[in-house]
Write a protein that binds this DNA or RNA. Structure first.
Length: 423
RNA sequence: GUGAGUGUAGCUCAGUUUGGCAGAGCGACAGGUUGUGGCCCUGUUGGCCGCGGGUUCAAGUCCCGUCACUCACCCCA
């Protein structure tokens, strides 16, 4: 048996890696343009960080983490999520001392031990960004607007933005009691998992796909939006207004509850019909207590995380990738001494920063040309013993097939001149 | 953790119903053109039919087991 990839991981092969590079280049340029600075954190952290940050009772922490003991007996975990590590770095490095407001982004690999399916992997990648230091709705609105605009620039269409407020911690606590009380009378009518949810995590009842459960919920579940504090309501209205003003389309979905414990007030999610059952391309929201929960000074924050594999899945279907340019100059040689001269020419071209390559398989001219074509070379240099004898090379344009003869000694300079002339 | 589907050439898949020589297209390689790519034509290469056991004169095909992958549930990006 050959060695195999670990379940839920993927090889990114040479022919598809340009898609990743295209996206990564775009993201770095986009974030630079929007004045976000990159942050990179280690691949693993102490397990405690995630238990505290994400919440012990969440699925991510309770059953999906890659956790192990190091030789010192410390419990460490491959990061299943990025906000908590970024907050740890923010606190540990006193970033709040540098400026009262911090805008940071990241592109990174994450690990969760789940059953893989479409758009879900055990090692997957996210990019995301965070705005730290402000409680005001402008930051919430910028987070959503910036994410939406990013997708729009990539050419994505038919995105649904779902927006909700789950209130501050106090008003949410009160609401959860009201919700539980309102649903208790129907306890027996719910499906098995929902009966458990009623005990452990009432908010999740909104997610159930069983029709009858949904019917009970629409008929009898009070909306969180009716139980927000005045401050929460004003904040939410302000976020909506700013989105209206900036032309970002959204729908308020009072059933949207994010699965991580740290969220307060604003939560949102953007979905695409081009994905499978896991149709969220990103999710995010406000977290006003996370930093203090992790031992920092009370600092409000808001942010978003977007799945890179899911984004690529969409771009693949919409033909969102530009064709990569090679600018390859392929040197074809025929004969022993021509091969040596050709090698020299390749080196010379590379020295002046041109993309040059020669055949290493000593193939026929036909095979070398076929290879040049496959490699999408724009130009081919043909150098056989015949040409060598008269100190010349043939330069062939692969687009129109025309050939000209150049002097071997000055071939590199002449090629440079031709390329410059052309563009 | 639960459920369903699929495993045959490098890739995409026929062949399984009704057991009887292991197939196609694409790709790769070569020839058609003494030293000229793509298009076309011809040929060549390429297989533990996922793995193990069973039934049978005979198994890719039927039976049992097992592994892997995919999709879905839970939950999330």
């Amino acid at each position: 048996m050959q060695y195999q990839r670990i379940k839920g991981t993927r090889d990114i092969l040479p022919l598809e890696v340009y898609q990743w590079q295209y996206l990564e280049n775009f993201l770095r340029e986009y974030f630079k343009r929007n004045n976000y600075k990159e942050i990179r954190t280690p691949a693993f952290e102490v397990t405690e960080l995630f238990a505290r940050g994400i919440g012990d009772d969440t699925d991510v922490v309770s059953k999906e983490m890659y956790t192990f003991l190091d030789k010192g007996g410390n419990s460490l975990t491959l990061k299943p999520e990025l906000t908590a590590p970024v907050m740890r770095a923010y606190i540990q490095n006193n970033l709040e001392q540098i400026a009262p407001l911090t805008k940071i982004y990241y592109i990174d690999a994450l690990f969760r031990q789940e059953r893989p399916q479409k758009g879900r992997l055990r090692q997957f990648h996210q990019f995301g960004f965070e705005i730290l230091g402000t409680p005001y709705p402008e930051a919430d609105a910028e987070t959503i607007q910036t994410t939406y605009e990013l997708y729009r620039e990539l050419g994505l269409k038919d995105l649904q933005i779902r927006l909700n407020s789950i209130g501050s911690r106090t008003s949410r606590g009160q609401y959860l009691e009201i919700l539980r009380k309102a649903l208790m009378p129907f306890r027996e009518d719910f499906c098995g998992t929902c009966q458990e949810r009623l005990e452990k995590n009432v908010l999740r009842l909104f997610d159930c796909k069983v029709e009858f459960c949904q019917q009970i919920m629409t008929e009898h579940a009070p909306s969180i939006l009716d139980h927000l504090s005045d401050e929460d309501r004003l904040h939410f209205k302000a976020v909506c207004h700013l989105l209206d003003v900036s032309g970002v389309p959204y729908t308020i979905d009072k059933t949207l509850v994010r699965g991580l414990d740290y969220y307060t007030r604003t939560t949102f999610e953007i979905t695409s019909s081009l994905l499978g059952a896991q149709n969220a391309i990103c999710g995010g929201g406000r977290y006003d207590h996370l930093i203090e929960d992790l031992g920092g000074k009370p600092t409000p924050g808001v942010g978003v995380a977007s799945g890179i594999e899911r984004l690529l899945l969409i771009l693949e279907q919409t033909g969102g990738f530009p064709i990569p340019e090679t600018n390859l100059i392929y040197i074809i040689t025929l004969g022993e001494s021509a091969r040596v001269a050709g090698f020299r020419l390749v080196c010379e071209l590379r020295r002046i920063k041109l993309n040059a390559q020669m055949d290493f398989l000593r193939r026929s001219i036909k095979a070398q040309l076929r290879d040049a074509d496959r490699e999408q070379a724009n130009w081919v240099v043909i150098l056989g013993d015949e040409e060598l004898a008269r100190k010349a090379v043939i330069l062939k344009n692969m687009k129109d097939g025309r050939q000209t003869e150049l002097a071997l000694d000055t071939a590199a300079e002449q090629i440079t001149a031709i390329l410059q002339n052309q563009s």
